[in-house]
Design a protein around this nucleic acid. Structure first.
Lengths: 235, 235
DNA sequence: CGCGCCCTTGAGAGTAGTCAAGCTTTGTGG
DNA sequence: CCACAAAGCTTGACTACTCTCAAGGGCGCG
């Protein structure tokens, strides 16, 4: 293993990608794992970069975003501890399809394409696990596509908040706090709207006492109200 | 192998999913392959159905569409000969996430989840191939998400036509003919707009001599013009 | 011949985007 | 510790793209 904080088989065995592997296989994995710590606002990889690696976030949070040839930008997803990223590029065209930036200080594991391929060839369970993960991602993407095609901004923003709180929500006295630092622009870019529309909506909801923003962190006090907005048509 | 038209190892070996496999492994695959012929406008599977299978279209064309709880509908993709479908559901929640309908008479192969899992476990190459396929799909989905978020209808429709002609285009004296029977509604549902907007655009382009519709088949005479619309901003 | 399906076209309305200006918070250096 | 700069957020006015709804036309099939 390369330089970086210490870690053990336990750190890996609880991850979806390495589920169901024997101790000896986990050791093989560890042998080719690279561990890295990064400061906030670090670019982990660039859209178009070669020498792709599969990444796994151990601690912190990461934003995956994509910029089109026309300059249009979207947030593909936010990554929290225990989630994989940059792995879709593997085995396809050998280039990252998106940018990855840390939103906080962060620690990640990563594996080279070649090493992972070897591991997967030798232990099909890893490949099958990866397939499960990627399958879930596709379903998510399809749901977002439908949402984007058929629902008005208000409901998309509501759903986005619900999804984020499911992904990275922590209960606090004030409500469910989303574990990523989010700017209005981030929220806009993930639900396909503008900074302005998001601002107006959140302001409204904030005034209604349904949620609060504090140093780039959202806390949802009344999930049920947000849910109502997301499900019903007109308020 | 179950009833159905005859087929051989050659039919499988050229497919992405079974690339790089030995003859004996292909025989294993064939042993659990189910082959089915279907008439036009047949529902192959329903969103939410259990007992999922992986499907591979041998001949004909299929539309994969998704209907949300709100009734909103999108076309996830069209499937042409040689393409997999219904495979994303594998290993996730055990339910099809979308509907599949034949647009023409069609022939498909399919495999049960359990059989495929066995095959993949024993031959990791299959799992890795699957990973490649699914990875491509995710990238496509992400590109569509960006398009939908950032581009006006006109450009989305143009890009959709270009994508379809790349996927299923055949050269004819009149131009590139798209191999699926497409109603205006289908095009609308795949690029997130309405039947009306599509109709207006296609009528315009048709009048300009860039394309023609004949019994639900589109033929693009001037790809370059469509490309221009897709790339430039204002016409 | 007539019915059904699909497509076209027009008029009107509304959601959400653009742009501009000012405010608040955060972070930095004197 | 304060002050100022930069980044992020709010708000308003305006615009326009695209959807909705309605009516009618063409084509194929029974």
């Amino acid at each position: 293993m390369k330089p970086g904080p210490q870690f053990s088989r336990n750190d890996l065995s609880s991850l979806a990608l390495f589920e169901g592997l024997s101790a000896s296989v986990l050791d093989e994995v560890i042998a080719v794992t690279r561990c890295r710590a990064m400061a906030r606002d670090t670019r982990i990889f660039n859209q178009g970069d070669g020498h792709v690696r599969a990444h796994l976030l151990v601690e912190g949070s990461v934003r995956i975003s994509q910029t089109g040839s026309d300059g249009g930008q979207i947030v593909v997803r936010f990554i929290g501890p225990g989630e994989m990223f940059g792995a879709v590029a593997l085995f396809t065209d050998g280039k990252y399809p998106a940018d990855a930036d840390t939103l906080t200080d962060a620690i990640e594991f990563s594996w080279s394409e070649a090493d992972l391929l070897k591991l997967m060839s030798a232990h099909s369970q890893i490949a099958i696990n990866a397939l499960k993960i990627v399958g879930k991602r596709i379903q998510e993407a399809q749901n977002r596509l439908r949402e984007l095609s058929t629902q008005p901004v208000e409901r998309r923003v509501a759903h986005t908040l619900l999804r984020l709180s499911r992904q990275a929500g922590r209960d606090t006295p004030d409500g469910v706090k989303i574990g990523f630092p989010l700017r209005r622009k981030d929220i806009a870019d993930i639900c396909g709207t503008t900074l302005f529309s998001v601002s107006r909506l959140l302001t409204t909801w904030e005034k209604a006492g349904w949620l609060a923003t504090r140093d780039q962190h959202l806390t949802i006090a009344k999930i049920s109200e947000i849910q109502r907005v997301g499900d019903n048509d007109r308020t």
